[in-house]
Design a protein around this nucleic acid. Structure first.
Lengths: 194, 194
DNA sequence: GTCTATATCATGATAGAC
DNA sequence: GTCTATCATGATATAGAC
């Protein structure tokens, strides 16, 4: 792995743990095993480093959905599973939280280039989720009433909130219950009589 | 208003906006109109100030429920409305978020005395909500299936998540949709045939 | 590419005058 | 109670040697 990637990895886990203002170049350097100054060879400023970290996270969380958009013959249920996969991985890791959920708390004072990446993360995740819900209902995979967009907002809020709370309570069941409830909301866990 | 209260107010709105590591004594002093050093007359350290701010927030958000616990003849529907009142006030203010939702992002690196207050906030809110749900269902005010405790976790996650996301999206509908969905979850908005 | 050394600034905190 | 002055520390960032 390149030094740049190791810097990004260290920075990502540090932000996830402490937030943007809670980590320093000294922390990153210490974790990677280089000196503070060396970081500037790869990133000209902290904001640029932060932006890159969020951008990379965004792409990683999104990739499965891109695939689905391109291969339209894919089953919606499978696409939804793929969408949830990285979320569940994060949710079942005790100390972990969503990078953008954490940054959302500091949102108002983040550097603009970081803030924009965070906004984009939430926007595109909600857009994707709404599209999955809408198509899934049309295909008979999901069952729910009302606007898919509104449901997407609510579902994603629930996931993000459960990330934060499960960590403060050291209780993974908060996340599990959220996922179970999401399944119930889209009708994939509690089949009702037709 | 006393100087101490003005310090606490300034600190609360600063944390809500920027997080614990995003505000400084200089910020507080500037907002209150005193000098940095004067803050130490009231609070011996930043952590003590932070703890007091969260403690005060916690008490303010809780008071309505304490009342209900003591006066047991109160209607559960009314108690739930009282519980939601400060939440809705916060949710409908564009730049606002839950103080503890924000601090949840920085949770791992908060001073212990602050962290403990944040944990307690989530704990007691979930406990109260679970009790409201359970009593409300027994009284026929709410209708839902499953464990009231699990529902309380999910409901509160949804609210907290919507606080964070509505701010990053500058879109109050995220919060409104969450509240509407909560109503649907406890059966107060979408009456179904018996 | 990585380092040492340093500049510059902001931070939390303290001492002591008034 | 509030101030000025100051300290020690740690932050981001830069210059330049190797």
């Amino acid at each position: 792995m390149t030094t740049e990637d190791r810097i990004l990895d260290a920075c990502e886990s540090l932000i996830q743990e402490r937030g943007y203002f809670g980590f320093s170049f000294a922390d990153v350097a210490g974790e990677v095993g280089i000196r503070k100054a060396s970081i500037y060879y790869y990133f000209p400023a902290k904001a640029e480093l932060g932006k890159k970290v969020v951008n990379r996270y965004r792409n990683r969380m999104r990739v499965v959905c891109e695939d689905w958009f391109e291969a339209e013959n894919l089953d919606v249920g499978e696409a939804f599973k793929a969408f949830m996969e990285p979320i569940v991985t994060l949710g079942r890791k005790p100390g972990a939280a969503c990078l953008c959920g954490v940054l959302g708390g500091e949102f108002q004072s983040l550097p603009k280039i970081v803030r924009d990446e965070v906004s984009e993360f939430f926007e595109e995740h909600q857009r994707t989720l709404a599209l999955l819900f809408e198509n899934g209902r049309n295909d008979g995979v999901f069952r729910f009433d009302g606007d898919p967009k509104a449901l997407a907002k609510v579902a994603f809020s629930m996931i993000e909130g459960s990330f934060l709370i499960k960590r403060t309570q050291n209780d993974l069941s908060v996340f599990d219950d959220a996922v179970a409830n999401l399944d119930a909301m889209i009708g994939t866990s509690q089949p009702r009589p037709l």
